[in-house]
Amino acid sequence: MSATMTTRTTARQHLAVRRDRSLLQRIVEVVAREFRVRRDMRALGSLDDAALHDIGLTRGSMEGALRYGRSVEQLRPAVDEAASAPLPRSLVEWR
């Protein structure tokens, strides 16, 4: 019976070490992500407004885009009003 208790204790200790390792790993990931965000903020900050506009960003939206990604509305291409007009019925029908 003592062998079983020893095995359970060892399994619990192993589980605790695994939890600590994953916590440490998560902390390292968070710190590494913060370093990447700050590095990319400096790189984007060095661009002029025209270059930021070309990639679809403004000075105010840089940090949000780096941390959380861009929203779906920002990813959609601009729609040309003339090109998006509905086709005449004769071109849409299948005959």
Rank of each mutant, 00 (worst) to 15 (best):
R33P: 06
H53L: 11
L44T: 03
G56T: 00
A83M: 07
R12S: 12
R95M: 04
D48M: 07
R59D: 00
A85V: 06
I55V: 14
R21F: 11
S90M: 10
L23P: 00
A82V: 09
P88G: 02
S2V: 05
T58E: 01
S2R: 04
S71K: 13
D54M: 04
R38Q: 11
E29C: 14
R95K: 09
G56D: 07
Q13H: 07
M1C: 04
M41S: 03
V37C: 01
L24R: 15
A78F: 02
D48A: 12
T7K: 06
A32H: 14
R38W: 02
G64H: 06
V92N: 01
G45F: 02
M1W: 05
L87F: 07
E73C: 09
R36F: 06
G69M: 07
D54G: 09
R70Q: 05
D54I: 02
L24Y: 11
R38D: 09
A65P: 01
D40S: 05
A43K: 07
S2E: 12
L91A: 11
V28P: 05
D54E: 09
M1R: 05
I27L: 15
T4Y: 06
S46L: 11
T4K: 15
R95A: 10
T58K: 08
A65D: 06
A85M: 08
D20S: 10
Q13K: 13
T58Y: 01
T9G: 05
A11H: 03
M1N: 06
D20A: 14
R76T: 02
L91G: 01
A83Q: 05
L87H: 01
V28H: 15
D48V: 11
L87C: 08
A50G: 04
P88Y: 08
L24C: 11
G45E: 04
E29V: 12
T9N: 13
G64V: 01
V79I: 14
D20N: 07
D40T: 04
R89N: 03
T6S: 13
T6D: 10
S90C: 08
G56C: 04
A82G: 00
R26K: 15
D20R: 12
E93H: 06
D40A: 09
G56P: 01
A83S: 06
H14Y: 05
F35Y: 10
G64T: 07
R89D: 08
L75V: 07
L44R: 02
S22F: 10
V72G: 00
S71F: 15
E63S: 01
A83G: 05
A32F: 14
E93G: 03
Q25Y: 13
R39C: 12
S71M: 01
R67V: 05
L57Q: 03
T7S: 05
R12D: 13
R26W: 00
L24I: 12
H53T: 11
R12V: 07
R26D: 11
R70D: 02
A83L: 13
L47Q: 09
R67N: 07
E29P: 06
T4N: 13
R59H: 01
V31W: 08
V28I: 15
D49T: 09
E81W: 10
D48H: 12
G64D: 11
M62D: 03
